[in-house]
Every structure is written in C-alpha cells, then in structure tokens.
Design a binder for these strands. Structure first.
Lengths: 128, 128
DNA sequence: TTATAAAATAGTAATAATTATCATTATTGG
DNA sequence: CCAATAATGATAATTATTACTATTTTATAA
C-alpha cells in the first residue's frame, strides 16, 4: 500500500518543471535546498517507484547515469554524441515498427524503445 | 597503432561462435579455460576497442550489465521482460525513422538504436 | 637476430552508479 | 488517538566498469 510522502511529491514536481531529463544526482542536489537531510537512497527509491507506477520515465542511455523524465507520455529522445544532452523529439509514434519486429518473431512484442543519435544544434555549429 | 594480441583474437572468436550476446563476465569465465591468467580488465579493454573499430557491437539494455554481439552488421534486438535474454530479430532496417525524427529537429540525426520488449516464446508459454 | 619503441597484459586499486539494511519517523485507517 | 506499516536518512554493500602500473608481447628496422 502506497503512502504519501512529501519527498516523493517534490521529486515528481521537480521533474515536471524540467525539460532536460536530469540525473538522480542532479535531482538530489536540487532537492537538498528544500530538504537538506534528504538521502540519495530516497531519490533512487522514489524514482524507481514512480517509474513502476508509470508517473515518470527512466531513460537508460547506455552512457553515464540514468536520466529521468517527468513526461510519462510516450515520446522519443535524441542523445547528442558530443555533449551528451538528451532532447525530446517532436515526432509521431512508431507503433508500426512493432509489427515489423513481430513478423518473424515467435514471442510477443509489447513495446519498443528508440534513441536517436547525432549532433545537437549547438555542437553542430561548433564542429564547422 | 594497433598491435595483434591473442587475447583480443580469442574474445572476437568467442563472440562469433555465440548468438546469445554474452556479458563481459561470461566471456571472462569462458576465456579463462584457454587463458587461465586473463584479466577482466583485458576483456573490457578489448570489448571497448573492438566496438570502437566496428568489429563488434555493445548492447546497453539498461538492465544489468552490457552485452556484446559478434555480429557488427546493423540489426535489432528483442529483450524478454521476464527472463532478460536478448534475441536477434529478423527484420528490415528502419532507416526511414531517422527522417521522421529529423523533420522538426534542428540538429543532425545520424543514427538510432531500437530495442523491442515483450515475452519470448518460452516465457510466453509459461505465463499461460 | 637483436635492439628498441610502442602497445598490451595481468593484477590490483579505484570509481561510479545503484541497491540493501536498519533504526527511526511519518502516514493512514479504524 | 493508536496501532500497523510504509517511508525516511544514514550508511554499508554491491555491481559494473575504468584506471594504474610494472611486466610482457609485438612490430620495426638496423
């Protein structure tokens, strides 16, 4: 049974105000301003719980620590190869690729995760 | 400048014989039979190097340790939510999704990585 | 071949990210 | 209000990976 906690609400609220998919560490540093005694374990525990109940998204980019997204609606992310920042993409859903994957696969495809890679606008300029 | 190493060749060769995308630890346990003194650091160093030069693929699933794939050609993977195994999918390339992502994005989309999730054949049977 | 420079190794320590443990505190339903 | 239990903070432990270093191996070329 889930009980209310101020810390959890703050984590959720903080994530909602951000569009840059912060790490657990960043969330920790920021929430310490409001809750100087908050523990990193509390951050991780709640991020995991919120992900489980579908209120936020955990983004495992494969490089560096996990990032967290207060927008639980399905959408896709871009990861800059140069600066590492994670950016939301405005694009339609790709549900059709599940069917392509299902075609010759004997199990059940229930979903997918997609990351796009390349150079973000700023890094693109600097390269030239 | 790259120099030959028996250990590196063995790691590559081992990966080529496997279709199950082993972890660094699994590779280590197996190569110890041939090289009892091989170090886990050597495994990691070479897996990273082989990935950099495009001879193998590193698969970061986001759950558990990275997995490695001796097949460097682009292809997609399925990850079973229940048993965690990683399976190669027989399906066409999805290059068109890069264009969909590029459409409203000011940077440059160079590539993507896709994982499909669901139940593998065995786990699907056990659920019923 | 042998001398030498560079690269790779084994062994080990260190780091980064995350999870577990546990005594205490907060929340909730009756 | 009170008991049950969920959540917390503090800390230890674990997991996965990378860094360091003395030694060994490989490539080059005299």
């Amino acid at each position: 049974m889930l009980k209310y906690s101020r810390q959890r609400e703050s984590i959720k609220k903080f994530l909602m105000t951000r569009t840059d998919h912060p790490t657990a560490e960043t969330i920790y540093e920021n929430l310490r301003k409001e809750y100087p005694k908050i523990s990193l374990g509390t951050i991780y525990r709640n991020l995991s719980l919120l992900t489980d109940i579908g209120e936020i998204q955990t983004i495992s980019t494969g490089v560096g620590p996990d990032r967290f997204d207060g927008n639980a609606k399905p959408h896709y992310h871009f990861i800059c190869k140069h600066c590492g920042q994670v950016i939301d993409l405005k694009m339609q859903g790709l549900e059709h690729i599940n069917l392509l994957a299902q075609h010759e696969f004997p199990g059940i495809i229930e979903g997918h995760s997609v990351f796009f890679y390349g150079s973000c606008e700023e890094c693109m300029r600097q390269e030239k």
